[in-house]
Design a binder for these strands. Structure first.
Lengths: 296, 296
DNA sequence: GACATTAATCGGCATAATCGATCAATCCAT
DNA sequence: ATGGATTGATCGATTATGCCGATTAATGTC
């Protein structure tokens, strides 16, 4: 015998147990008295127990009714909480979104988007992971991030992706460098230069190896981890560097220049990445939408 | 917007979230696939949120679905417990009954009934209060006892009552007492006897005062609390006593006699008493039924 | 004993639920 | 590619359920 009871019936039961009067309780529930009478009977049938002892003068809970009332109060409460929780969630008054982004994006472009998101959905907790591309992917795969903004070299078949930005590489050099006067530079112009590169684990490095390897420029004198170090080395005349546009803010110095590369140049494609096997939460969908709107 | 969701829908939702397949889940729920599809849609409409992301190949919970699933599991569990609890109660596998009875009844007649009740409904807890009549009434009024077996002198208007037994009084005397040879005794036969009476708080005392006061026999030498004391006093030749039949088991002694009183005699009516403003629990109803069946 | 109050019942109707059949999409094997 | 198999959604017809208004029956009150 399968149980079937609706929230409506539970509510009607509790209303009657408070009002102790069918007519009044029916009004409370916005149904006719006859309907209400039927509802109580239905519930009693369902339970197989008489819940109220009633005549035209008195309506009083039976002991079974008392027992059930206690339980029903809890049930109704729990159900209401469950629903209001979910509806808050749907209304994006609650929730959680985690976004993983390359440090360059996380520091340069993302903050404005996050600010806007916070303004729109103040109740949603936001988590930002500023990590390298491969880590971004891992976080998404492990479910620790809903969305990633990254430029991975590895395959993206496993993920849902969308093009976000083509980040072109610039030559960074000191103002007194031989190529500093050129409006654009070619790989040939850089032959013989000392290159300062980011560590192998960065996507910048990998894209560069792919591109520069192809043009034959492979010399590399330095390999460092932080852009600030790159800047310091360049300023001391120890070399030049090829870095994507999104990092240029780190090189705003009177003695430094960023020169675009001649076509076709070098670039890294940055993607919006998320899991395709699991749908995005509403909070994450909203974030994705905002990211698209504010796309570079 | 009033919530309305049925247990059936919650169960369907959980089934689908486990089976991840509409057709299979529908079979589990004993409905057609089309019906099942409609049920899930109805639930989603009700909640205003998409719970499953589905195509013909995959059925996967959305994050909102996950959230709801957790809550729904608890709800379904609670509802099932509530129902099974109540049905145990209805089936009298569980429950509680408290009965208040005069000490004479509690010691003499009740144990067999209690034993039978226990045999019939082993899961129900039984509470017995062996107290004097007035206390019996108090316990019932306070809800500490469901049913009382008592012989109160006070008004019973407040209660629902039913006649249980007419407890006739007997004369208890020593075998060598002047009236010992009579088959029945009258009040006249007892003129001048010393009477041993139970204390004023007992219903026996009060019935006796009413009856004997009317026939003019008012002498009273002793007033004690326990029947065993009465027996001792009589055995030592200090008097006789008038006591109801239900107490006679306390006077089975070779030197003691119980002699019926001549018509009309004296008697106390014993009633089954319970609250009339509150219905009896099922467990108590069963007890009442048994008491009626086994009535003296 | 008449009256007022109130829960239960009845008949009719509208809506919702259910089913079987079919459609459309998706994946898989070839 | 392409055809077949699987599966969820949709459609139309049928049935069941829920709801209402009117009426009835029971009960307490004056």
């Amino acid at each position: 015998m399968p149980i079937n009871v609706s929230f409506k019936l539970l509510k009607a039961f509790l209303t009657l147990s408070e009002q102790k009067n069918f007519t009044r309780a029916a009004e409370h529930c916005h149904v006719s008295q006859s309907t209400f009478s039927g509802m109580i009977q239905r519930l009693e049938d369902e339970l197989g127990a008489r819940l109220f002892d009633r005549n035209t003068r008195n309506v009083v809970l039976t002991p079974e009714g008392e027992l059930f009332a206690e339980a029903a109060r809890h049930l109704v409460n729990d159900i209401q909480w469950t629903f209001s929780d979910l509806s808050d969630y749907v209304a994006k008054k609650k929730g959680h979104v985690a976004i993983a982004a390359l440090p360059s994006i996380a520091g340069e472009w993302l903050p404005a988007v996050i600010a806007e998101y916070r303004r729109l959905y103040p109740g949603i907790a936001i988590e930002i992971h500023d990590v390298l591309s491969d880590n971004c992917l891992d976080l998404v795969r492990q479910g620790q991030a809903d969305i990633a903004l990254a430029a991975p070299n590895s395959s993206l078949d496993e993920y849902a992706t969308e093009h976000f930005h083509t980040d072109r590489f610039f030559l960074i050099c000191r103002r007194d460098h031989p190529v500093a006067s050129l409006p654009v530079v070619t790989m040939d112009d850089l032959r013989g230069c000392d290159f300062i590169r980011l560590s192998r684990s960065t996507s910048v490095h990998q894209h560069l190896v792919n591109a520069v390897g192809a043009t034959g420029v492979t010399s590399s004198s330095f390999e460092v981890k932080y852009l600030s170090t790159v800047a310091g080395l360049i300023l001391h005349g120890l070399g030049v560097s090829l870095l994507p546009e999104l990092t240029l803010s780190q090189f705003r110095h009177p003695d430094l220049l960023a020169i675009p590369l001649a076509t076709p140049g070098i670039s890294r494609p940055i993607h919006i990445i998320w899991r395709k096997d699991k749908p995005l939460s509403l909070a994450a969908q909203a974030m994705l939408e905002l990211v698209r709107q504010r796309k570079l």
